[in-house]
Amino acid sequence: MMSLLIVGHRGAMAHLPENSLASYALAEEVGVDEIELDVRLSKDEQLFLLHDATLDRTAGDDSARDLGPAAELTLAQLQAATLDSGRGVVTLAEMYDATHTFIQLEIKDPAVVPHLARFFEERPDDAARTVLTGFDADAVRHAAEMMPQIGRQVIVTEISKAEDFEGGLWALMDHAKVTRFASGFSGLTAELVDQLHARDIEVHVWPLRTMEQTREALRLGVDGATSDDPAQAIQWRDQILAENGVTVR
């Protein structure tokens, strides 16, 4: 039985506001191996972190509600709005300056790709602790072409979604030029994980919400799993490994 990397989903969002500096800090404090978070582009072409296309769901007060698409707001407007974290959006640079953990950076808007390339050209140390991820295979491919030095991961909700790609799963892997693949549990088998590993593609699962899912992730032999509550996920993983005589880190 192999170990399992635990990835904090938008930090430690079960306990602190998602995509906030506090959430990222808590994820690092509890010992995550990686943090997953989401990058978007403002109207004035600044990189910032937000999952949704608008601020509405994560609004802390009326200043962040009904402002329309975040992509149509300047960074100053995005920072002036109060989110549930008590402040405005976090910029990409702020996040990297405040963290040291490996980062899964999800491309929420394909328009960010050339801006990310310029960002990482100026910050090679941050590029070295990043994998670029996303559901949009074309955006991931574009990232591979512009930033070949950075790993890429395509995400699907379940294996059947990958098979829907023209040519199937393997065509998707080739098209997106991936070094990693992330999937929901549905349809994922140990045999498929082995086949992906044989192609030097790492495999991650998400979301990890129960101890039984943690057992399944370990049984499948995947490399990592993403959790809203990474402290709990680490506890589950370490307990299962200990039960199987595996020395816990």
Rank of each mutant, 00 (worst) to 15 (best):
V131C: 08
D66L: 14
H9S: 02
L92H: 00
P124Q: 03
R87L: 06
L192Q: 06
M211E: 15
R118M: 12
E122H: 14
G151S: 05
V32Q: 01
M2K: 15
G86V: 05
D97S: 02
S23C: 09
V131Q: 08
M95R: 03
A111S: 13
D84G: 08
A70K: 02
V131T: 13
A98S: 13
L41S: 02
A162Y: 04
K177T: 10
D33M: 10
Q232P: 03
V248T: 08
R57I: 01
V205K: 00
I107C: 09
V30T: 14
E243I: 03
E145S: 10
S183E: 09
E212G: 12
K43H: 15
T247Y: 11
T214V: 03
V178E: 01
A190N: 01
D33A: 14
D38F: 01
E202T: 14
L92S: 01
A81C: 07
E243L: 13
V248A: 02
F181A: 10
H115C: 06
F48S: 08
E145F: 00
P69Q: 08
A242L: 13
T189L: 14
Q153R: 11
G86C: 09
D138W: 11
D52L: 12
R65N: 04
H175I: 05
F120L: 11
D66P: 07
A128K: 04
E45D: 14
D194E: 11
D84H: 07
I103K: 01
P207K: 03
P17Q: 00
T157Y: 11
Q149G: 07
L26H: 10
L188P: 07
M147K: 04
L21Y: 02
E216Q: 12
E29W: 09
Q213H: 07
A14R: 10
V30I: 13
V32Y: 00
L26K: 09
T101V: 14
G187M: 08
G151V: 03
L92T: 01
V203P: 08
A231G: 11
A176V: 10
L92F: 03
R10A: 06
E121N: 12
A12M: 03
D238Q: 07
P124K: 02
A53T: 12
I6T: 08
L169E: 05
V203K: 00
